[in-house]
Nucleic acid binder design. Structure first.
Lengths: 266, 266
DNA sequence: AAGTGGTCTAGACCACAAG
DNA sequence: TTGTGGTCTAGACCACTTA
C-alpha cells in the first residue's frame, strides 16, 4: 500500500480538491496506488474479518466517506469495483449489501449446466460419502497445503429431472472445515457454497475450471448409469476465497446428453 | 432512447449542474435512460458505421464531451463501459482506441485451449475446404436467416505442437461474406476474426458456447487421428456482432489429451 | 419526508507518452 | 511542454424504497 494510508487520516487534514493539497499519493512514489484502491482494500478487510456478514447491509456511502476521510465519489468507485467482483450488491434506495450464496440466484454462476432447450433445471443432491483423510501430493499442491495434511473428501451425485447427471468429488482443507460431517451436510438445505459460507465462514469468491472430454472409467460409469468408456465432461475446479487462497478442489464428471455446459465469451 | 437526445443539443442549452436546469432526462419519464447510456449508444453507432475503424484512435474525451454537449465525466463513464465490453481500449497518455482482433493478444479470448502445463501454445491452421451452399434449417435459425439462404462453410484443422487437435466447421452468412474463397483464406496471415474484421468489416463482439463431451464419429475420428468413439470436446459457438446480430456458427471438436479448455468463474 | 444509491457537472491535479 | 487518460473532490439533483 501507498504512503497515503487513508485509514483514519490523510497526510495533512481533510485535504479538499482544487484548493488545498490533494489527498492522493505522494508524488513520484515508486509504488503508486489510487485512493479508491486503498479504500477497496479496507472494505475488503472488513468483509473478510466479518465486520459485515453475508446478506447484511454495509454503511452508506456517506458514512464510509466520513469514516475513511475521503469523498463520496471515491468510496463509490471502490464499491463499484467490489460490486463488479460480486462481493457486494447494490440496491437503489435501500443500500449496499454483502453478497451471499444463499438467496442469490447465484446457483448458475458455479454450475453452468443447462438442458438442451436452454432452460435451467433444478437439481437435487445425493450424498455418497464424507471422509477425512490425508492430502495426496496433488491435492496438497492445489490447496496450498503440506502433503498428508488433513483434508475432507465429499462424494455426491446430482440428479437433474430424476436422472443421475453429475458425479462430484470435493476436497476441502481439514483445518478450515473442522466438524464437517455427512450428517451436517445432509441436514443442510441449500447450495453447498451457502453452507460453507454460513457454517464455516468461508466464502467462495472465484474459481477456475479445466474442462476435458474423458472416457468413463468403470467406477464412475456405474454410478452415472452409463457404459464404461462413455464420453463424459471432466470439470476440474479450484475455488478461491479472500486473498486468492484456494479452499476447494472439485472434480466433476458430467453426463452431457440432454444437457450442456454453457459458457459466454465476452 | 429517451426524450433527451443529447446528440447535438440538450432540451435547453448547455445546462450546467448545480445552478441551472439539469440536462438529464425529463422527469417522470416512463422510459428513463441515463445520459451516459445514450452517449454510449452514439459512440457505438460511430463504431458500427466505421467512422472510427479498428486500431484507430477516437477523439479525446474533451472533444467528445464538446461534440455531444455533455461533461467529460459523462463521456468518461460511457467509454468506461465500452472498454469493459472490449469495444474500446484506453491507453493512458495516448488516447482511446478501437479494439481489434489483430495485434491484440485476444487470441486466447476466443480459443481457450491450454496445454496441461497451463501454457498457451501457438497453433497453425490447415484449411480443408471452403464452399458456398444453402443454409440448413438449423443453421438458418441460428444465423437468423431464411432456410436455403446462401451460407459459406469452412472446414479446418488446428495443429498444436504439430498434432491435429481441433476440427472446426464454420458457417457464415453468404451475404455478408461475399467473395470469401479458400484462396483468400489461405493467403491471409493471422487470426480468422482479424480477417473478418479487416476484409469484411464484420467485428465479432461476443459469443456463447455450448460444451459437451461426445464420441468421435468415424469421419471426425479419421481427421483427428483418434479411434472412432474417442471422447471429444464438442464446442458449439454462436458469435455476435454489433446489435447482437449472429454472424457465425462454429462447431468444433477438440482432442483434450494434453490440452484442456480453461474457464474462469468470477 | 427522509435516506439510499444513481446521475451529472465542473474544476483541479497527477501519471504517462511523445514531440 | 503539451495533450491524453486517471484520480479526487464537492455539490446538486434524480430515482427508488421505506416509514
Amino acid at each position: 500500500m501507498n504512503s497515503n494510508q487513508a485509514s483514519s487520516a490523510n497526510p495533512i487534514g481533510p485535504a479538499g480538491a482544487g484548493e488545498s493539497a490533494p489527498p492522493s499519493a505522494s508524488s513520484s512514489s515508486p509504488t503508486f496506488s489510487p485512493l479508491y484502491q486503498q479504500i477497496k482494500g479496507l472494505i475488503t478487510q472488513s468483509l473478510e474479518s466479518g465486520e459485515w456478514k453475508p446478506g447484511e447491509i454495509i454503511p452508506s456511502e456517506v458514512e464510509l466517506a466520513a469514516r475513511y476521510k475521503v469523498s463520496q465519489g471515491t468510496v463509490r468507485k471502490a464499491i463499484d469495483e467490489l460490486a463488479a467482483d460480486n462481493l457486494l450488491v447494490r440496491r437503489q434506495g435501500k443500500g449496499t449489501f454483502v453478497a451471499t450464496h444463499n438467496e442469490d440466484r447465484a446457483q448458475f454462476r458455479f454450475l453452468r449446466l443447462l438442458a438442451d432447450d436452454g432452460v435451467e433445471h433444478p437439481h437435487i443432491s445425493q450424498l455418497l460419502e464424507c471422509r477425512r483423510l490425508r492430502a495426496s501430493a496433488e491435492i496438497a499442491r492445489q490447496l496450498d497445503l503440506k502433503p498428508s495434511d488433513p483434508v475432507v473428501l465429499i462424494k455426491r451425485l446430482l440428479q437433474f429431472d430424476g436422472e443421475d447427471t453429475v458425479l462430484d468429488e470435493i476436497w476441502l482443507p481439514g483445518g478450515v472445515f473442522r466438524g464437517l460431517t455427512l450428517e451436517r451436510l445432509s441436514d443442510y438445505k441449500g447450495p453447498l457454497y451457502a453452507m460453507f459460507e454460513t457454517e464455516f465462514g468461508t466464502r467462495m469468491i472465484r474459481a477456475t475450471e479445466k474442462i476435458r472430454a474423458v472416457a468413463a472409467d468403470p467406477t464412475v460409469a456405474d454410478l452415472l448409469h452409463v457404459p464404461p468408456g462413455f464420453p463424459l465432461l471432466s470439470v476440474e475446479r479450484v475455488s478461491y476465497t479472500y486473498g486468492d487462497r484456494p479452499v476447494e478442489v472439485r472434480r466433476g464428471w458430467y453426463v452431457t446428453t440432454g444437457y450442456y455446459y454453457q459458457n459466454d465469451l465476452s
